[in-house]
């Protein structure tokens, strides 16, 4: 293969990748817009879009204070979870790794629950995402330590299940001790996720933290590519492994923690999206992280639309829809891995 052929293939590949990136961005925007236009108040698209710009009247306030945070959070949460999933899969060189399966989301939920139900949120609203990020950080750090000690793919998933179950039990314990009559009934919200009646404040806290987390994850692509060749090869290529791993763990904690603080635990997005996109973008983490963010945004926004179309009375939770898609996919993936030599 001469240099001209390589250049041609690269150009072709770039064109192919760009087209899919545009398609994913379009899908995310379309579902985001659809989510924005859906709601219990009967306003036309024109009234809502005009209201979004002007902020005037009931339609304007509903557009700015209710619909915008919901649609934007759907996109942000999806991007955070899927981007984290792609990065974790690259870090652990494990196709089953994702924030939900590895217990990172459950630990983030535990952090948020502790902050909220023990009154810490009343000190400052930022304590909610900060505690969620701390929870996610602890889970990601434990997993990282396990992977360093040589745990295999299945062991890591089992460790993730243990961490997730432990965090869920602690969440239930924290809610039991909380002096609040609604605490127990809200457990399902923290375990299944919801974007109902979120505010611009929720968006204002989630957006910058998630953006920093995703920026950190985006910067790890090349290093994670090298890591797929093994630690030694990555080092010989000049990759600072300690810095790389720290950036992934911190990026996942920031993105997943902020997303979970806003929406509760939404599972399987980080698993499904990177796997669906691998045939389109290739297996290298550097090619997958950003498309996964866009795909995740589209998936969660689509799930948010679907749940309101399936159950317009708002009884269906976001995590229910993503789990119904993700759990069978997870089983299929395990069976596929078992068949591999």
């Amino acid at each position: 293969m001469d240099a001209t052929t390589v250049s041609y293939l690269q150009t072709q590949s770039l064109g192919h990748r760009t087209r899919w990136l545009i398609a994913l961005s379009g899908a995310a925007l379309m579902f985001g817009l659809w989510s924005f236009l859906l709601g219990s108040a009967d306003y036309s698209a024109h009234e809502l879009l005009t209201g979004l710009v002007t902020g005037k009247g009931a339609a304007g306030i509903i557009a700015q204070e209710i619909r915008l945070p919901r649609a934007a959070l759907a996109l942000i949460v999806g991007a955070a979870l899927a981007g984290s999933g792609a990065a974790l899969q690259g870090l652990f060189v494990n196709p089953l790794a994702e924030p939900g399966v590895t217990g990172v989301t459950s630990c983030a939920g535990l952090g948020a629950v502790v902050a909220m139900y023990f009154g810490l949120v009343t000190l400052h609203p930022l304590t909610l995402p900060v505690f969620a990020i701390a929870g996610a950080l602890i889970a990601a750090a434990i997993l990282y330590a396990l992977s360093k000690s040589g745990a295999g793919a299945v062991s890591l998933v089992l460790a993730g299940v243990a961490i997730g179950s432990f965090a869920t039990a602690l969440t239930a314990l924290a809610l039991s001790f909380s002096a609040n009559p609604y605490a127990m009934s809200e457990m399902v919200l923290w375990m299944m996720g919801s974007l109902k009646d979120r505010t611009l404040n929720d968006l204002a806290f989630a957006l910058p933290l998630t953006a920093v987390g995703l920026a950190l994850l985006s910067s790890t692509g090349r290093g994670l590519d090298a890591l797929t060749l093994g630690d030694e090869a990555a080092r010989s290529l000049g990759v600072n492994l300690t810095s790389l791993r720290a950036r992934v763990v911190l990026g996942v904690a920031l993105a997943t923690g902020a997303a979970t603080a806003a929406a509760g635990a939404v599972s399987f997005v980080g698993l499904v999206v990177p796997h669906l996109l691998r045939p389109l973008f290739g297996h290298q983490p550097s090619r997958l992280i950003v498309p996964s963010m866009l795909g995740g945004a589209a998936m969660v926004a689509a799930a948010d639309v679907a749940l309101r179309l399936i159950a317009p009375d708002g009884q269906l939770l976001l995590g229910v829809v993503t789990a119904m898609l993700g759990a069978p996919f997870f089983l299929w993936l395990i069976l596929k891995l078992r068949r591999q030599p």
Binding site: G39, S40, A41, D42, Y43, A58, I61, I62, I66, R67, M116, Y117, F118, G119, L120, V121, T122, S178, A179, N180, Y182, A183, S185, E186, L189, K196, D197, G314
Partner: peptide, 26 residues
């Protein structure tokens, strides 16, 4: 939902519970 309350525009909206009630999503 909050937006349904706004769309209904009641003359009186009685918010149950305490103004500075404990912390919960509720």
């Amino acid at each position: 939902p909050v937006e349904a309350v706004i769309a209904a525009a009641p003359e009186l909206l009685v918010l149950g519970g305490e103004e500075r009630s404990g912390s919960a999503r509720a």
